Simulated assay, not measured.
Amino acid sequence: MKPPYEITPTILQLITAISEKLGAVNANLVSRPSPLLRKENRIKTIHASLKIEGNTLTEEQITALLDHKKVIGPKKDVMEVVNAIHTYENLQKYNPTNEKSFLKAHQNLLKGLLVNAGTYRNQNVGIVKGSKVAHVAPPAANVPFLMKELFEYLKSSNEIVLIKSCVFHYEMEFIHPFLDGNGRMGRLWQTLILMDKYPVFEFLPLETLISKNQEDYYNALAKSDQLGKSTVFIEYMLGIIDASLRQLLDFNNRTLTDKDRLDYFVSLHKTDFTRKEYMNMFKDISSATASRDLKKGVELGLFQKIGDKNKTSYRVLIE
């Protein structure tokens, strides 16, 4: 059964804008950001997603935990971050269309924080905002069937992925299948659905923009609840995706330094290559600039130089 939503002019405009930016991402070598940018974005993603749920740790503390250092903070908050780091470092292991994989991700995110993490709730719940009940979730007995239907939509619908990811996010939040962790699971799973088709979404911190104005996020959910369809939430999330891609392109439209080029080239996991192949990757640099880059790469221990003169080639030394 297809979840209810409409395709509005706003949705069509946003899809066009996002598609253009995704094309620019591929054309400008941004589909695999440098290792440093990937790490920064992962820290921002974890910080923002957990901050929305009330976690108090800072980006600096999350960086320390990512580097396996101890930090001082509430035990629950530290455990949430440790679990999130493990989950986000293993995103490739989850199958976005597989319900068992979905439950495994929840188990990993809520390990040690929630009894029976990784299983659907067995009691009825409501979401309270202030003194009012903002949302009454479907009865617990209906959750397994509703989630099975939602995954069936995800697998069988011919709708474009950008829209399906938003629909899944909203519908999962509406069903509220877990006693805790629904918000972070909705945001995580939308990322997984998107990155299955567009790998760059692994490195896009969508949660950062959501956390900057959480009220818009909750208002979009509430408005969709009132209307009985996810149209408003689709418009909201597509706007977040568009803004995230714009930020990524703005960052990468700067003039690349030799370090930027070397970081990017190493991230491609090539083995042996020539200066010509390096220049084909960065078409706006001269042969002299390429030679200086490669010399620096050798000095930094990134590459090994093999041969001499016109028979020179290079071998990548680090993964």
Rank of each mutant, 00 (worst) to 15 (best):
K2M: 11
Y5I: 02
E6R: 13
I7H: 06
I7A: 06
Q13W: 12
I15D: 02
T16D: 14
T16V: 10
A17I: 05
E20L: 13
G23N: 11
A24W: 12
L29F: 11
V30Y: 05
V30T: 13
R32Q: 14
R32D: 11
S34V: 02
P35D: 04
R42I: 07
I43S: 10
K44M: 14
K44D: 15
I46G: 01
A48D: 12
I52G: 03
I52S: 02
N55Q: 02
T56W: 05
T58V: 13
E59A: 04
E60V: 12
E60F: 10
I62S: 04
L65H: 08
H68D: 14
H68L: 12
H68E: 14
H68Y: 07
K70G: 07
V71A: 09
D77K: 13
V81G: 03
A84K: 03
T87E: 07
L91Q: 09
K100A: 08
L103G: 04
L103I: 04
K104V: 07
L109V: 08
Y120Q: 08
R121Y: 06
N124R: 05
V128R: 01
V133K: 09
V133G: 01
V136H: 14
V136T: 15
P139D: 15
N142F: 10
N142A: 14
K164G: 02
V167K: 00
V167T: 01
V167E: 00
E171D: 09
M172S: 00
M172L: 07
I175C: 04
R184S: 01
G186T: 15
G186R: 05
W189K: 06
P199Q: 12
P199G: 14
P199M: 12
F203Y: 15
P205H: 10
P205A: 11
L206C: 09
T208G: 07
I210F: 01
N219M: 06
A222C: 02
K229E: 15
K229S: 08
F233N: 01
E235Y: 10
M237G: 10
I241Y: 01
A243C: 00
L245D: 02
L245M: 04
F251C: 01
N252Q: 14
L256S: 05
L256R: 12
L256H: 10
T257K: 00
D258C: 04
D260P: 10
Y264K: 04
Y264G: 00
L268D: 01
F273L: 11
T274L: 04
T274K: 07
Y278I: 00
M279D: 02
M281D: 02
S286R: 08
S286K: 06
A290C: 09
D293W: 03
L294C: 11
K296F: 05
K296N: 07
V298R: 02
G301E: 03
L302Q: 02
F303R: 04
Q304N: 04
I306P: 06
D308K: 15
D308V: 13
Y314M: 06
Y314V: 05
R315L: 03
R315Q: 05
